[in-house]
């Protein structure tokens, strides 16, 4: 391989964007009939990390509302309780030079409003990583990106097979 090819390869790699992965898992899966008929009544964000901005919590609440409106369109009401335990934001310089990632982790619990019983319980994990100019740009709006990703993960994990998102 010539120097020209190597430079070309490095150039392509430097322009590479990023990719998203999830590490969400069910601790207690919703019964299948509940998955089909669920609708979210209230959303409570019980906790967020101390180092996030004041915009994160309302942004997450908005995204959860939009996402669950799309993915839970049934008639049985459930309350959604969310705790975000970690939000790691990428460093732009590091992302450009060697690559970095945005990571969000937390829990989502679905509670029957009449009995107060937890009917669905999920560990949510979502990250977007990448390198080069593309990666740094993709990861620049960490909090809104992670709020959107977390909300989508709640839907994808708790309500698998739902229709495509219309609103987020």
């Amino acid at each position: 391989m010539t120097a020209k090819n190597i430079i070309c390869a490095l150039g392509l790699t430097a322009l590479l964007g990023g990719c998203a992965v999830h590490s969400s898992e069910a601790v207690k899966v919703l019964p299948s009939d509940v998955i089909k008929n669920a609708r979210i009544y209230t959303i409570t964000i019980k906790g967020v990390p101390e180092d996030v901005s004041g915009d994160f919590k309302p942004e997450l609440e908005k995204m959860l509302k939009l996402a669950t409106t799309d993915c839970a369109q049934g008639q049985s009401w459930l309350n959604l309780e969310v705790t975000v335990t970690q939000l790691k934001k990428s460093n732009a310089g590091k992302a450009f030079l060697v690559g970095d990632s945005n990571v969000v982790k937390g829990q989502a619990r679905l509670v029957d409003p009449t009995s107060g019983a937890v009917v669905g319980d999920y560990d949510i994990g979502y990250s977007v990583g990448g390198g080069g100019l593309g990666g740094a740009l993709i990861m620049s709006q960490a909090e809104s990106q992670m709020a959107r990703g977390f909300a989508k993960q709640v839907c994808d994990t708790a309500f698998p097979g739902h229709k495509r998102f219309q609103r987020i």
């Binding site: 990023g18 992965v21 590490s23 898992e25 069910a26 601790v27 705790t83 335990t85 790691k88 060697v98 690559g99 970095d100 990632s101 990571v103 982790k105 937390g106 829990q107 560990d123 994990g125 990250s127 977007v128 990583g129 990448g130 390198g131 990666g135």
Partner: peptide
Amino acid sequence: TQDRTKIANKSNAYGMEM
């Protein structure tokens, strides 16, 4: 209360949980 189904996650060079 968190990471209840596993004891760790593998991660890639970007620090993403795999």
